[in-house]
Each structure stands twice: as C-alpha cells, then as structure tokens.
C-alpha cells in the first residue's frame, strides 16, 4: 500500500516542475563551478556553502508547502480504506526521495562527465550524503510543523524561523558562548554544541573531508581528533540520525491522531 501511495506521489511530484528546477539548479551550478574552478575537490568545497544554506531552506519550505497543499488529497484518501501510517510514510518518502534524488543527481552528474579524481569523488559523495541527510531532516521538521499548525501563515513563518535559527542564529549563540567563557577550556562544550545543530554538524563533517581542518592548527586538530576516530564518527552519525528520528516520529504520531 505504501508503494502504491508512493508511486502516485512520485508521479505527482515529477509532474510538477519544481523538482526539475531543483535538479537544474544544482546541475548548472556544479557545471559552472567545474568550468571555472577546474578540479572536483574545489567544486565540492564551493558547493558546500550552497548546500548548507540552500538545502535546509528549500527542504523546509517545500515540505511545509507540500503538506498544506496536499490537505484535501489526504482527507480524500483517508475516506478510503487506507491506513494512516501507510499514508504518512507514502507522503513523507514521496517528497523526501525526489528531493534527495534531484540534489544528488544534479551534483553528481557533472562529476561523472568531468571524470573527477577518486579524491574528488570521495568529497562529492560526502557532500551528497550530508546534503541528503539535511534534506530528509528538514522535510521531517516541515511535516511536523505543517501537522502541528493548521494556519498556513503561522506554519510557514515558523518553518522559516527554524531554518534561520539553525543556519545563522545558532552560530551567533556559539560565538557568544565562546566569547563569554573564553578563559575556560571550551573544546568539549563546543563539540557538544556543534552536535546539537544538524547544519553545524554537517558543516564540520564536510570541513574535515576537505582537509581544511588539518590546516587549522590546534582547534582543527581537536576537531579532527574527535570526528576522525570511530567513536567520534559514530557519535556524529548517531546525532544526525537522532535529528532525523525525532521530528519524523513526532510528525508520525501527530498524523495518526490528527483530526483533519
């Protein structure tokens, strides 16, 4: 049943043009960077900025819009013998999967036809992994918000604020904390703080991939030491998965009992 809903969803998403635009956006951008910058490593490093800003924003806005627009469709389906949890997963994957596919395809295609080096591929795959995780996480947050607030304006506003919070305000708070407690050893608290924001986490994982951290002296070494080890990797992955699980489960539970 999930499969069937998913199939309809995918057909619907592909028929609407924004997914095409989304693919083209990443495709053209990566391609242009290849034409100007040259090697794949540099391209991945430039794409990182875009990915960390565009993906959360696009995912959360599209997610919220999508669910608000699908309201009548959901109501219609719920009149039929369709189980609620099936419908939820169909709706969720029906948006998250095309977004992930569009982003991955757009970024990776230029790598294919530009015959990038193995090192560049590694960086690109890490970029795609991080971007995909961020996509799914922010779609989940968007779904939760859309299910929580019936008022569209309120929901979209909140989605934007959450996005803004994680991309900008959170880092401001970190800087503030670093300044206030500058006379204390801050390595561990700052590591923990960075785990609490999926965008920061993604940024640090990517930075480590591009070897910049190795050039960054003592602080870089601290981060490398943590994220470079198996334990650090496990913790950061677990933290990303937790970021995924919490909004999905919250949204799911809300969906099961919501009075549409």
């Amino acid at each position: 049943m999930i499969g069937k809903i998913l199939k309809y969803q995918l057909r619907d998403v592909i028929r609407s043009r924004w997914v095409i635009a989304y693919v083209l956006f990443f495709l053209v951008l990566t391609d242009i960077l290849f034409r100007f910058g040259g090697d794949g490593l540099r391209v991945a490093s430039s794409m990182m900025n875009i990915v960390l800003i565009v993906i959360p924003l696009a995912s959360i806005v599209l997610g919220a819009f999508y669910l608000y627009n699908a309201r009548e469709y959901i109501e219609l389906l719920l009149c039929h013998p369709v189980k609620r949890h099936q419908l939820f997963w169909g709706m969720f994957l029906g948006l998250a999967l095309p977004l992930v596919a569009a982003f991955s395809g757009g970024v990776l295609l230029p790598y294919l036809y530009n015959a990038a080096s193995a090192e560049a591929w590694r960086a690109a795959l890490m970029l795609v992994f991080t971007g995909s995780m961020l996509t799914v996480i922010f779609v989940a947050i968007a779904y939760y918000i859309a299910l929580r607030f019936d008022d569209r304006i309120k929901g979209l506003g909140l989605a934007l604020i959450i996005c803004l919070f994680f991309t900008i305000i959170y880092d401001g708070i970190i800087l503030f904390v670093i300044y206030i407690f500058s006379s204390y050893p801050l390595e561990k608290p700052v590591l923990v703080l960075s785990l609490l924001n999926p965008i920061d986490l993604g940024r640090i994982l990517l930075l480590l991939q591009f070897d910049i951290s190795a050039l960054m002296g003592l602080t870089g070494a601290v981060f490398r030491e943590f994220f470079g080890t198996a334990l650090g990797m496990a913790i950061s992955l677990a933290s990303l998965l937790l970021w995924l699980a919490v909004p999905v489960i919250a949204g799911f539970r809300r969906f099961l009992v919501k009075d549409f």
Binding site: D171, S182, S194, D200, T219
Partner: peptide, 20 residues
C-alpha cells in the same frame, strides 16, 4: 581577528553567520 583572540571560534569557519 576573532579566531586570533579565541581559537575555538574556528569551528564556525564557513558558517553563514561568519560570512555575514
């Protein structure tokens, strides 16, 4: 300059906030 005074701030490298 920020990093010069507080090396830990380096973790914000390439952050949107820092770019602003």
């Amino acid at each position: 300059l920020i990093v010069e005074r507080n090396p830990m701030a380096l973790m914000l490298l390439r952050s949107m906030f820092v770019q602003i």
